[in-house]
Nucleic acid binder design. Structure first.
Lengths: 228, 228
DNA sequence: CGGGATATTGATTGATTTCAATGTGAGTGG
DNA sequence: CCACTCACATTGAAATCAATCAATATCCCG
């Protein structure tokens, strides 16, 4: 099923040391800590595929994950990126509506859906957490629709950077785990336009590029202004 | 709160006769039949607003509803259209992430969220129905992202028409309850491009226009082919 | 220290938007 | 009942933003 130099391994001891990022806490995270199984996925390895039955819920421990859909001719739309502390795959349906892959080598915790749902029956607070995680996914998708349907390239890149900025605890040094190609497929642009727009933002003194994957937010307010 | 020639009325007897459309049945629809209150909304009247607390769940009896977000400068992105039989406003969060308006004069049933949730506690099947309605909303949003991020104008219009076609039970005469402006804001295009593209589809013998709001699907397969 | 993948930058094209004019139709009031 | 009117829709011409085609540049990674 996996055409790549795929490698994913169940893992008791061989857990990759996680950079000390502040990770969101929630009833869900606790559940993962209790009943979750830790696995590592190499970059670009599939975690689940579209139309597969939903068997697990997932939490990113380290690394990053993208969910996406592809058209027959290869055009790809990335739905969301998940960073450490984020949970994904909580879709209510019985089958996945999209696919998930590791963006970079990632450590992921899996909890069996059936087990979590059984716990929900005994713990209403957990049900609440699950429901609200699903809600925030929907809300993010709705915001994303506004970006794709109605924003210019510069506005799209600005909202993307602001989103990452916020999710990395507003630290002005942003580490991008994903390629320009991923960003382009998330924003509905080409890699060239993403690259040019990042250069433009740099020339406007909104950001500084240290390397392609590391940048400094010099003016969050300028980015917010562009966020329309 | 409502700047328009707004008019919405609670309604016991004055229910607008509903055209005899086949309406989806589900545990949810039953709930609305039991605990729902019927209201009428004139065209363009707000049903709920972004950031308002979620008080009710809604079901379209007749007419049509749009949910949307707007940017400061007025750019609007329509998230979804709801047709008779559809339920909406089931967002899990405590506050609405978007606004809802009647597209045309519509009859809507409202059920108090708290009442429905109380019923869920006693009826797992209902919980299932609620969960799966929410899931289909998320899945629709994900498909919409692919359309907005990666499809051409012709593909967008084709997928829109196919979606309405399917939801109106594959009858080849399609009634569009919404304006070109609404369609444009749903598809991330301008009204001119929507209009031109519909003309293009007509010239390709995929559809025939009887009037702006009424068209005939001459070749669903041509539309599907464009659907990429 | 290469070397291939990834990213940037430039030149040109092209799809969609914008600006503009005309057409159409539903609802209203005379 | 018809004419009028205003909102909505179509069509055309020009402009524009992003895509495409193309040529370096840079950065990991072995």
């Amino acid at each position: 099923m996996n055409m790549r130099v795929a490698k994913s391994e169940v893992d008791g001891a061989k857990v990759i040391p996680v950079a000390n990022k502040s990770v969101k806490q929630s009833a869900l995270t606790e559940v993962f800590a209790i009943v979750g199984v830790t696995m590592n996925f190499d970059a670009n390895v599939e975690i689940f595929g579209e139309a597969e039955p939903v068997e697990y819920f997932y939490e990113v421990v380290s690394g990053a994950v993208r969910t996406y859909k592809v058209l027959d001719d290869g055009r790809r739309q990335i739905d969301a990126f998940y960073l450490p502390g984020d949970t994904f795959g909580l879709e209510a349906g019985s089958h996945h509506a999209l696919s998930a892959e590791a963006v970079s080598r990632s450590t992921i915790r899996l909890a069996k859906r059936s087990v979590v749902l059984a716990m929900v029956a005994r713990d209403p607070e957990l049900g609440q957490a699950l429901w609200s995680a699903a809600a925030s996914g929907l809300s993010a998708a709705q915001e994303h629709l506004l970006v794709l349907g109605r924003k210019t390239a510069e506005e799209r890149v600005a909202s993307f950077l602001l989103d990452i900025f916020r999710r990395e605890a507003n630290r002005d040094v942003i580490e991008l785990p994903m390629s320009r190609h991923d960003i382009a497929d998330y924003l509905g642009l080409t890699i060239e336009t993403v690259s040019r727009t990042i250069s433009l933002l740099e020339s406007e003194n909104a950001i500084t590029l240290q390397s392609a994957r590391r940048l400094i937010v010099k003016s969050a307010s300028r980015l917010r202004q562009l966020n329309a």
